[in-house]
Write a protein that binds this DNA or RNA. Structure first.
Lengths: 250, 250
DNA sequence: CCATTGACTTCCACTCAATGGAAGGAATTC
DNA sequence: GAATTCCTTCCATTGAGTGGAAGTCAATGG
């Protein structure tokens, strides 16, 4: 009866990965039907793939029947260089920054034309923030993003300048102005934003260099303070950035 | 010619997962040949699977040709409950503990008969520690492990008591003594170890409760101090534990 | 300079593992 | 108790996956 009406051109692996892709920040937990919908796969196929992922430990079935990402996949993700090399080294310095400044501290790397947030440490003044580990935000509207863009390849810069999406009324969407800002960031060594991503919050950020002198990440502080107040934190950020560089790749 | 000599009884998915399983803490980066060896798959099959994983973003190829876990897999792992619910909530409390006590703070959950370390915060006195996020250590030889075991199901306790492996000369390997220690831990609300996992380091730990009153994790401090000194930190640990419970599941 | 080695990539005819519609359960709602 | 929702199992069909072999490329060394 069945069997014939396959979905040609799609590998088993791609289907298994589609199942995993069904999970994201807004859908960290999903029922079989939801997974099947989101992955665009027949229910029976999804059922089989999910079962295999559960046996392996990549997914876990909760009491209510919904599936979640399992510890095995979590532990595997920790092996990624962003976690194992960057986060591991940067965390103590970020803690010190958060403790002494009282503000939220971020570290991010560039992923295409987005800033990928690796870690966030909440300061004591704890502003509510949009970013979380794993979040991607546009390069042009965030402090860390501007730093990463200022040190990116020309191809990336051109790509990013072509997508200056307006997020708030203060987002810089004029190419010429952004180009001038990027030059300024390279010159003075730090970037700033004022309500360009979220209304009511400002940020400053500096580059984190690898042992070879290339920019591997950006370290930033986000707060509700005025720009003036945040600018004072630049020396502390630069100190932490140097510490991270010195500590990495022992 | 070929084609016939398959490896029957093994699904494509299981092979793809075997490729991922080739990566671990000791092998966070591997060449195609190494992956093929570790996964027990023919080179050409490995090649195809790896290529698909790279396209998806689960693996990344470095300049030297070796593969590493990619950002996509890392971000996916962050969706696991241990990270999204527990770590996210516990981190600020752990930071405070590390800042005020100056010692290394750990949080771990039980995974079978092992303590799975979720996060470690280095104190200012920074002892070198064995644990890292994602590490699994025996329940009976660690402070957090003993807490988790003391509140575990009888089936688990029996299983764990059957595997009291000696790690150091001070590891508790006598069943009767361990049973008495577990009862004591339940009674007074905290566990301690003295050089039972690593020579020269001691630890104390307390349970972290979920909203329903069940033990979901264990919070501990590891240091080179004497047991006497560490015991003083129990109230601080208990305070942090309560804070974590209160903050979770808003 | 060419032989050798090792690591990776591509090729292709064969075949069995994957397929997915349908039917059967189980639990919940109306 | 009928309808609905969600999950699980079944099975004949077939094309996606297979892996040995041959080809490519770079590095080593005689």
């Amino acid at each position: 009866m069945a069997g014939g009406a396959r979905d040609p051109g799609r590998s088993v692996t791609s289907k298994a990965l589609a199942v995993l892709s069904a999970f994201d920040l807004r859908t960290p937990s999903a029922s079989l039907t939801v997974i099947s919908d989101r992955a665009g796969l027949p229910l029976s196929t999804t059922h089989r793939l999910v079962a295999e992922l559960v046996v392996w430990g990549g997914l876990v079935r909760k009491a209510d029947g919904c599936y979640e990402i399992g510890p095995r996949l979590w532990a595997l993700g920790l092996l990624a260089p962003v976690s194992r090399e960057l986060r591991e080294v940067a965390l103590p310095f970020m803690q010190d920054l958060a403790a002494t400044t009282g503000e939220n501290v971020h570290i991010a790397v560039r992923q295409g034309i987005h800033a990928l947030y690796i870690e966030r440490i909440a300061g004591t003044r704890s502003v509510t923030v949009v970013s979380r580990s794993g979040t991607e935000l546009p390069l042009h509207a965030t402090g860390v993003g501007k730093v990463l863009l200022a040190h990116a390849d020309q191809v990336i810069v051109r790509e990013a300048l072509a997508h200056l999406v307006r997020v708030t009324p203060f987002t810089v969407v004029e190419r010429g102005r952004m180009v001038r800002q990027l030059a300024e960031i390279r010159r003075r060594g730090w970037a700033e934003t004022a309500q360009e991503m979220t209304m009511g919050t400002c940020s400053v950020a500096v580059a984190v260099f690898g042992q070879t002198g290339d920019v591997v990440a950006a370290l930033g502080v986000v707060a509700t303070s005025s720009r003036r107040g945040l600018t004072k934190l630049v020396p502390a950020l630069q100190l932490a950035s140097r510490g991270i560089t010195r500590t990495s790749r022992r």
